[in-house]
Simulated scan of single mutants.
Amino acid sequence: MASGGWDIAMRHIDQQYDLPQFVASSLVRKIAANGFRLPAADRSKFQKLPDEVIARIEQIVRESYIEAGEDVGGDVLREHLWQQASVARREMIASGELLTPTEFKNRIGVSEKRLARLIEEGSVFGVDVDETEYFPALLADPLLNRKRLQTLCRIIVPADPMSRLDFLTSQRGSLGERRPVEMLDDDVDFKSVRRIATAWAAEWSRTIVKLYAGDHQLEPSDVEPLYTAIAEIDPRKPLWARASEALHLHGYEWPLDPHRVIPIFTLFVSRQAVGDSTPIPEACVQILVVGERIRIRIVAAAGTAHNSKTIAAGEHKTFVDIAKQVVAYLLKH
C-alpha cells in the first residue's frame, strides 16, 4: 500500500527522534502547510526542540512529500490526501484486508448485537470507506490470541482507526523491531506491548490546564495565562485525574518558576486530540484565597456538581500550589 507524504514524514521522524505522536503530527502538519517551514509564530510552541532539530524535521517533511510525489496547497492538499486514503482503503477491501460487517461477524462468530457491543467497548474497530464501515481482517485472524488482541484494541482507542491498525501491524524499535500482533502469546511480551500501547495511546490526546488572574466564566482570549501545563494523557481517564497529572507531569509548562501569590484566579481545563486545532473546554473553576481558606466555585465541569466549596489553604505559597490542592480536592470529591 502506497504511503503519502505525511505517513513517510511521521515514520522518518519516529525513527530519528523520540517525540510524542501529538508533537510530531503537529509539526508535520504546520510545516507542510507553510511551504515546508515551521511558521515563526509557532516556534515558541516547540521551544524545547533546538533549532537544528526543527531544521532537520523541516527537511524530513519536505523530502517526504517529494518522495510521495505530493505538493502542498491548503484545500488542494487536504483533498488530495483524502482521495489518496480512499484509494488505499479500496485496495485493502479488494485484497481482503478489510471485511464487510457481515463477513467480519461471521469470521469471529458473533451476532450483530454482540458485534455492536464489541465496537462500543473498543475491542474491535471499523474503518470508513466511502461512508461504509469495514473491519480489519487482522482482528478476525484465528491464529492470533483474540482476547489479548481485543485488550490491545481497547487500550489504543484514542487514536483514529487507521493509526490503530498501523500500530498493531508495524515493527517498533521499542519492541525490538517486532510487531505488537506478534507479542500476544508470551506473558512477558504481552506485558511489554501493553505498556507501549498505553504510552502510545496517551500521545493521541493532551490535557491542558491554564490559570488566569481574576474571576472568569469563559477562557479569556485577549490576555496571556499566568500558567499553562500540558501533558499527553489518555482522554478516558477522569477529568480531575487528567488535570492533576498535567499539573504534576510538567510535560509542557510555563512560566517555569511561578512564585507569585495570586489571591483570585480561574482554572480552565481543556482536551485536544491529534489533528484538532481547537481544544475542547472541559472545566472552569474560580478560586479565591482568603487568609487560611480557599473558596472554590465550580462554573462548569463534566460530572462535577456546580457549586461552591471552602477548603483549608494549608501551607501552600504559590498559586500553582493552590491549583494543585484544589484539583486534588475535586479528584477526591
Rank of each mutant, 00 (worst) to 15 (best):
G5I: 09
D14H: 13
F22K: 14
L27C: 03
V28S: 00
V28Q: 08
K30Y: 06
D42V: 05
V53I: 06
A55N: 02
A55G: 01
I57K: 04
I60E: 02
V61Y: 07
V61L: 07
E63L: 09
G74N: 15
V76S: 12
R78D: 11
R78A: 10
V87D: 11
V87K: 11
A88S: 13
I93F: 10
L99R: 05
L99H: 05
P101Y: 08
P101G: 00
T102A: 15
E103G: 04
N106S: 10
R107Y: 04
R107I: 08
I108S: 10
G109W: 04
R114A: 14
R114P: 02
D130I: 03
D130P: 06
D130W: 08
E131R: 12
E133N: 13
L138Y: 13
P142N: 01
R148V: 05
L152A: 03
R154G: 08
I155T: 03
P158R: 05
P161G: 09
M162H: 08
S163C: 09
R164I: 02
L165E: 09
L168S: 03
R172Q: 11
G173D: 03
S174V: 07
L184C: 00
D186A: 12
V193A: 07
S205M: 13
T207I: 08
V209E: 04
L211C: 12
D215A: 08
E224I: 14
A231R: 13
D234Y: 05
R236T: 04
E245M: 09
A246I: 02
H250W: 12
G251Q: 11
P255W: 11
P255I: 08
V261T: 13
I262E: 11
F265W: 06
S270D: 06
I280C: 12
P281I: 02
E282Y: 09
I287Q: 00
I294W: 01
I296T: 06
I296W: 01
A301V: 00
A302Y: 12
G303Q: 06
T304W: 13
K309Y: 15
K309N: 15
I311R: 07
I311T: 05
A312C: 06
V320D: 05
I322M: 07
A323Y: 02
V326I: 02
V327Y: 06
K332Q: 11
